[in-house]
């Protein structure tokens, strides 16, 4: 199995996705914004379809840019709703998510009617194709993952401070707004990159599950980050191996189900000391 080049590409691709998603996911988790990954993943549909309509082909970077723009815009709109009205994050997220996804579906039907050829694959493309990752995809994932990790490393201290206590961060003069913008961009980047491999719904899993699982057993942010990374690697390794053995099973969902099982194990072995102060 380990000599099989295809297996290695799929594993490398999903591991890269999992690493960048979990790295960003920890900060998103700490800000109680885990579901914004879900909002972004649904909202990038219209942008990706527009990117496709403009170029007439499934160019990775054009789709990436299109998805990034609408996903980011959706996130801004969500925050705007919360800011100017009394509505809370949950309502804002549901409204924005459904609106953008609706628009995306409409554009998708437009794209399907256009004369040029390979559009039929577009919806399959958006539902994930992890088992079909090629060395080209993996190369691009590597570039993007390196970028995301570098940005996180560069701003890690500030990100941690803002995530734990944004009032304090503001008081000591950190540019909270700009740091949040950075986090949103990183999250959007990770989501747009992953959505083509595991699909609209399951990319949220790569953001949420590692952070959630590591929170159960960790006592410090440093531990949480490294455990999250380990969990995400285990998920992608388990998922690719199982789907290699049972080729009928799609890789993306298996990765997520492996993550769910890990979560159960971690729940049973969770640090009980954390709960004592409840």
């Amino acid at each position: 199995m380990f000599q099989e080049p295809n297996f290695l590409w799929v594993f490398a691709g999903s591991a890269l996705l999992a690493i960048s998603a979990s790295r960003v996911g920890v900060f998103v988790f700490l800000q109680n914004k885990s579901l914004s990954g879900d909002v972004i993943s649904h909202s990038l549909l219209p942008g990706m379809v527009i990117g496709y309509l403009l170029s007439g082909e499934k160019n990775f970077w054009l789709l990436f840019m299109g998805g990034f723009i609408t996903g980011y815009f959706a996130q801004i709109l969500t925050e705007k709703i919360i800011k100017i009205s009394f509505l809370k994050a949950d309502v804002a997220m549901a409204v924005v998510l459904t609106m953008f996804y609706g628009l995306g579906v409409v554009l998708l039907t437009v794209a399907e009617k256009l004369p040029y050829g390979n559009q039929a694959g577009l919806s399959a493309f958006l539902l994930g194709k992890a088992a079909a990752l090629t060395n080209l995809d993996v190369g691009m994932y590597a570039v993007l993952t390196a970028l995301i990790l570098a940005f996180v490393k560069w701003s890690e201290k500030a990100l941690i401070t803002v995530s734990f206590d944004s009032t304090y961060a503001k008081a000591i003069g950190l540019p909270v707004g700009r740091i949040n913008t950075l986090l949103t961009s990183l999250l959007t980047g990770a989501v747009v990159m992953g959505v083509q491999a595991v699909g609209v719904v399951l990319i949220s899993a790569l953001i949420i599950l590692p952070a959630l699982g590591s929170r159960l057993i960790s006592a410090s942010i440093r531990q949480m980050t490294s455990y999250a990374m380990a969990i995400s690697l285990l998920m992608s390794a388990g998922g690719t191996v199982i789907s290699y053995i049972y080729p009928k099973m799609p890789t993306g969902p298996i990765i997520v189900v492996v993550g769910g099982m890990l979560l159960i194990v971690l729940y049973l072995f969770r640090k009980k000391t954390n709960e004592k102060y409840e």
């Binding site: 885990s34 579901l35 949220s204 899993a205 949420i208 599950l209 959630l212 298996i254 997520v256 189900v257």
Partner: peptide, 13 residues
């Protein structure tokens, strides 16, 4: 948020 998201993605998968 994380609790809701964590549960539903696993079920969906």
């Amino acid at each position: 948020d994380a609790a809701i998201g964590g549960v539903f993605v696993v079920f969906f998968a």
